[in-house]
Design a protein around this nucleic acid. Sequence first.
DNA 1: GATGAATGAGTGTTCATTCAT
DNA 2: CATGAATGAACACTCATTCAT
Lengths: 202, 202, 202, 202
Amino acid sequence: MPKVGMQPIRRSQLIAATLEAVDQVGMGDASIAYIARLAGVSNGIISHYFKDKNGLLDATMRHLMQALSTASRARRAALKDDSPRAHLRAIIDSNFDASQVSGPAMKTWLAFWASSMHQPSLRRLQRVNDHRLDSNLCCQFRRVLPVQQARAASRGLAALIDGLWLRGALSGGDFDTEQAIQIAYDYLDQQLAKKQLEHHAA
Amino acid sequence: MPKVGMQPIRRSQLIAATLEAVDQVGMGDASIAYIARLAGVSNGIISHYFKDKNGLLDATMRHLMQALSTASRARRAALKDDSPRAHLRAIIDSNFDASQVSGPAMKTWLAFWASSMHQPSLRRLQRVNDHRLDSNLCCQFRRVLPVQQARAASRGLAALIDGLWLRGALSGGDFDTEQAIQIAYDYLDQQLAKKQLEHHAA
Amino acid sequence: MPKVGMQPIRRSQLIAATLEAVDQVGMGDASIAYIARLAGVSNGIISHYFKDKNGLLDATMRHLMQALSTASRARRAALKDDSPRAHLRAIIDSNFDASQVSGPAMKTWLAFWASSMHQPSLRRLQRVNDHRLDSNLCCQFRRVLPVQQARAASRGLAALIDGLWLRGALSGGDFDTEQAIQIAYDYLDQQLAKKQLEHHAA
Amino acid sequence: MPKVGMQPIRRSQLIAATLEAVDQVGMGDASIAYIARLAGVSNGIISHYFKDKNGLLDATMRHLMQALSTASRARRAALKDDSPRAHLRAIIDSNFDASQVSGPAMKTWLAFWASSMHQPSLRRLQRVNDHRLDSNLCCQFRRVLPVQQARAASRGLAALIDGLWLRGALSGGDFDTEQAIQIAYDYLDQQLAKKQLEHHAA
DNA sequence: GATGAATGAGTGTTCATTCAT
DNA sequence: CATGAATGAACACTCATTCAT
């Protein structure tokens, strides 16, 4: 059933199949044949749309990142309160969004992280993503904290988010999102509380 | 030539070669042939000592964990100050010990984490390790905090440690250990500070 | 847009692309996709005009042969001198014509020769071509030599031409055409010189 | 039935299978699977002994060349007459030796020639071989001819030999070796005859 | 007439594993 | 103990071909 203009359809179909495959058997065993079978297409189609397996994995990682940044942007655009605290909470929330703590997403992120240690193209994507979170956080912290402290706070919060996420991913299937968010909120408030201390000291 | 008692020698020789291999080419490309070449032995010997490749990876992960817990125990045994704060700082320190932030260690940990999502035996090891850090932290926090708070604090600190470690690993080669430790110390002190607030409130 | 009469245009366009492809990457790697890309058309069009890849290769070889025989005919038609020697020199010249010693031509001829060992259709073409050169040469030699000698002389000269051509093709890019032609002329004159000897002997 | 010291045995076994395969189906269709089946071994063994297919083809071409030079050396060592003419005749003979005009040998040579146009490693081998024939011929011609003439004579004879060989290969299965040798002998004598002419002229 | 989506068999290659020596 | 020869399945990838549009 060959048609015209299939490119975007097939691409997202194959990316979805890749996520599903990584969820089911891990990235190591997510062969092209396996992914193609999940997508219900032939093996050869992958090179047709992504050149090779690497192209597919690249596209899949890009898709995950875009999903995250889209979710984050949506949450922040919907804020009624423009305070730094509200923005930072929205960022925290979006990192524990359902789309990010699902099995496929978590497994794929982890696998990509591991792969990125030895694959320049993935590593580059990885660093772009890391930097974006960091800079988003820092931007907000700087509205209430001096630059030095803002930087430390954003590093700490970014690490805490990733760490909570990581331990959630590794712990099993039951991710207690609420508890994780609470811990992150706590950290956030403690960092913001330094504002007053700073003012008193000044 | 006495060939008795080779077992422990060969085993650690092969584990070391595995770590080196994962560092050099990643777990995906760390084939038995590659590891054997690094160790300077024949391919066949691996099944002799570890049954199969999985056995070797299992043993390697166990080795890493043991190294971490040994380092931690050593630091804590050397403490002159028995306070919870001192113990918790020692635990933090040992997680950013040189042995844990080296290239091979970081790459191998990451690879194991990713693999553990799909390999029951690795997953079991992983959870034991996670639990040990958690319980060590909680144990100390409970000496000054009520159980509920102690649990939250230990989860937060564990996550922060892992997150700092993770972001350090992913960021490139230059791991700013001092900054990471400082952020963790900060978090620790904030959690411990709740003791007084709690007492006042009570 | 009148799409009638495209056949001859498309056919020669695709044949030219085939020659270019064989020149660039060799016959083994001259895939339909590669040729189509060079020609700036879609993959599917080749079966439309040539049924399959074999049809295209067949047509390409026919094209090369026609080019050679056309060149030869043109040279001989332009002769002012009708002597056997003049004709034979013209034949020699046309075999080292620029169109025959160019990279694409040499590489394609060689590739076809090799393929013709295992492909009946190409082999048939090949033999027709060989026979034509032989018979053209023999025809002229017979005007001055007895049949037996004429046959030997034409075989020798044909072989010498092919051999010079082959060694030129294999040697690299720098084909010393003049030297090759000189050697062939030499051989020609020696064969023709047997005429007198023969007469003397008679 | 794995044994030790199989390397030389397996290597020549696989080279023989390669020649047979190229003879049967041509180099294009001589897949590793086909060759392995002919040799009665598994596919994987080829990489074990030759690293990859290219290594096998390289070794096969080297084998053919060595066979030729060995044959040539043997013939020349057996000469009772040390004259240039005798040596040159021996060289001619060895190029039409049964080992060189057999189906497998001819088809493989042709295929290698074609491949060498696009494969640097084969091209290098090819040029070494060409140069050897040229220099052997020239060496003998120089014993009776001035250098300039010797060089031309050796080029001509080399080309004639290759051309006769090529046309024999392409013509079908029936290689009239005797006729080819006679034509080459003729050429040889004509070149040697220039000695006297030269002297007379001088 | 022309496209390009789609197939699926086939390619070279890698690899964990087994086992005779 | 240790070797390395040997296997065969699995892999990513290529390709000529078909066909709905």
